[in-house]
Computed example of a mutant assay.
Amino acid sequence: MPSFFRRKRLMTVLIGFVILVVLIGFSMRDRSELTIPEKFIQDTVGWAQTIFHSPVQLVTNTANNIQDMFNVYEQNEVLKARLAEYKGLIQENQQLKKDNEELRATIDKTNSLSDYTPIHATVIARSSERWFKQMTINRGEEHGIEKDMAVITSEGMVGKIKSVSAFHSTVQLLSGFDRSNKISSWVLREDKENAFGLIEGYDMESGKLLLGGIKQDVELNKGDVVISSGLGGVFTKNLRIGKIDEVVNDQFGLTKTAYVEPFADLFDINHVMVVDRKMDTITDEEQNGEEEQ
């Protein structure tokens, strides 16, 4: 009995093997069409692959997208850093260019100041509370600076020395002047005699200097140049101050007041020159005395 079952199993295996060989041979033939079982199997496998492929592809794409996002973020951070460096270099270059232009203008101005000796200085501080009124420069008594000396740039006057220490000085800007700080001035008029006036203060609202003490019969025009006269004994003469912007009558109608636009930018100052008034030219009286002799 057992041998019968063994033979039966062996016969089953042989038949199965024969059938497998036949199927393999059948499937390896060149055929234009598949059998129904093959079509069923192919479709089943295809649908199974599709079902498994879609989520796998979705996960793969998501992972790739996330990786791309991280790469883009890193690249963006690198580009931002480089852009910040470029902006810093551009700003530094612009500042150096500006300083170079200011220094060149200062040198040119120095060459034209034959009547007095300028003392070069650099602005080192401006108080936030008194930004419009004063600043500190890196020159003091040891450099020949004295109180009330005029301070100018290549464009024009910006103020005067308010206080002095050994190596630093405080400059009172024209924008901080009031009626206690006056500059005797000439208004240069084309084809006419110079008109006298006094810089008596600064109008914060208009950003203009106030030139008072002008006689009622004196005619001033917009654009007339205002310079220091040197008659006050404090400032040297012929320092450029500004130009006439507007002329109005005072409240009593006896004199005129002119609004003067400063030549120099009072709020953006880096390099200045302090004018030694002792080096000014001889006075007109001395000159007339020499001519009489």
Rank of each mutant, 00 (worst) to 15 (best):
P2W: 04
F4E: 05
K8C: 03
I15C: 01
V22A: 01
I24E: 03
G25E: 06
F26M: 01
S27W: 02
S27Y: 04
M28N: 10
I36L: 04
F40C: 00
I51Y: 02
I51S: 00
V56C: 04
Q57A: 06
V59E: 03
T60G: 05
M69Q: 13
F70C: 07
F70L: 14
V72M: 13
Y73C: 09
V78E: 09
A84K: 12
E85N: 13
K87H: 07
I90G: 05
I90D: 09
Q94G: 02
L96V: 03
N100T: 08
E101H: 01
E102K: 04
R104L: 02
D115L: 08
S128K: 11
F132S: 08
T136Y: 05
R139T: 05
R139H: 04
H143M: 14
K147V: 12
D148G: 10
V151K: 05
I152A: 07
S154G: 14
E155A: 11
M157Y: 09
K162G: 00
V171R: 05
Q172C: 07
Q172L: 14
S175I: 09
G176I: 05
G176T: 07
N181W: 12
I183Q: 09
W186K: 15
W186P: 04
V187N: 12
R189E: 06
E190F: 15
E193K: 15
N194P: 12
N194C: 11
N194Q: 14
F196A: 14
I199T: 15
Y202P: 08
Y202C: 07
E205A: 06
L209Y: 06
G212H: 00
Q216E: 03
N221I: 00
G223E: 03
G223A: 02
D224Y: 03
V225H: 00
V225A: 00
V225L: 02
V234L: 08
F235E: 11
T236M: 03
K237A: 03
N238Y: 06
E246I: 04
A258W: 04
V260R: 10
V272A: 11
M273A: 15
V274Y: 06
M279K: 15
M279A: 14
T283E: 06
D284L: 15
E285I: 15
Q287G: 01
